[in-house]
Nucleic acid binder design. Structure first.
Length: 290
DNA sequence: TTGTGTTTTATTGCCTCC
DNA sequence: GGAGGCAATAAAACACAA
């Protein structure tokens, strides 16, 4: 019979099935629980063939479940097994006192040395196996809690970094807009400075005499023929306009308008050619006085 | 009372260390 | 190879809403 147990027992993963198997074997072998237990060492750890709780469950009494495990298997009797089968073992929770005691012990040291395990088991009226299991599960719970805490810390760091990043991004956009505006402003000032510088040079000569422009630099002078040609074109336009049938008032008005328009056109075209800019009024004055 | 989700106790299999 | 730890899991006990 023992040979059968040795081979079959490891195949039965559930305690209940094991007990039923045990019961069947007991009936078949016609021996008592006491003898069976004496022949089969028990509670030798997680890999034992029969755990201490199997025995206590077989006893079926609540009192024994929380009693110190004195390994007095002689208490077991055939009647106990029948009693168990009528009222199957129920998993019982530790009392609050036991849990408090274990918690305090766990706070001191979360690992369990063999001596301490035995002592705790004696103090609490539990089996060493139960104490070991409790510590094992308690360590697992502690680890889970620790992971949750770590996760919260990481999440909080992540959130603050994200907020900081978004703030910096907004600030960067704002600064970029500012840079563009300042660049534009700078470009306008440079153009204005160039323009006024050139105009000052030009205004040094006689205003009605384009030959005065000759005093400008060579680079500027090289652009003057283009300007002169524009002026000639405008002058001929005005001359043609004078010979039209329009009245004198209309004529004057149109001539002035044409002059202004023409000067603006000339300015635009000339500045497109890469040179200085004149204001429309300056041109008008220049041409008018001419 | 019952269904359902959570917690606790216990088991199993694998791994590491001595 | 045995002891013990750990992760995964089972299952009983418990809590709680409907």
């Amino acid at each position: 019979m023992y040979g059968v147990l040795y081979f079959v027992w490891p195949c039965c993963s559930q305690t209940r099935i094991r007990r039923q198997l045990l019961h069947v074997l007991l009936l078949l072998s016609n021996i008592g629980v006491e003898r069976l237990l004496k022949n089969f060492m028990v509670d030798s750890g997680p890999r034992s063939m029969l755990s201490f709780n199997d025995l206590q469950g077989m006893n079926g009494s609540k009192r024994l479940f929380f009693q110190p495990c004195d390994y007095d298997y002689a208490e077991m009797a055939d009647g106990d097994l029948d009693e168990y089968l009528r009222h199957p073992e129920k998993k019982r929770r530790l009392t609050s006192d036991q849990v408090c005691f274990l918690e305090r012990s766990f706070d001191e040291e979360n690992k369990l040395e063999p001596d301490r395990k035995i002592q705790l088991a004696k103090d609490l009226g539990l089996s060493p196996r139960q104490v070991a299991v409790w510590f094992q599960n308690r360590r697992a719970r502690w680890k889970t809690k620790q992971l949750e805490k770590d996760f919260e810390v990481l999440q909080s760091n992540f959130n603050s970094l994200t907020a900081e990043y978004e703030t910096l991004l907004k600030e960067k956009d704002k600064l970029e807009v500012e840079v563009v505006a300042l660049k534009e402003k700078l470009g306008m000032k440079e153009r204005e400075a160039e323009s006024s510088q050139l105009w000052n040079k030009l205004s040094q000569g006689p205003r009605h005499n384009p030959a005065g422009i000759d005093s400008a630099s060579d680079e500027e002078s090289s652009k003057l023929p283009v300007l002169a040609s524009k002026q000639e074109h405008i002058r001929s336009s005005i001359f043609e306009h004078d010979q039209s049938d329009l009245s004198q008032d209309e004529d004057d008005s149109l001539s002035k308008d044409s002059l202004v328009a023409a000067s603006i056109l000339a300015e635009q075209e000339y500045s497109n050619s890469g040179s200085f800019e004149f204001s429309g009024m300056d041109h008008a004055f220049w041409y008018w006085s001419y």
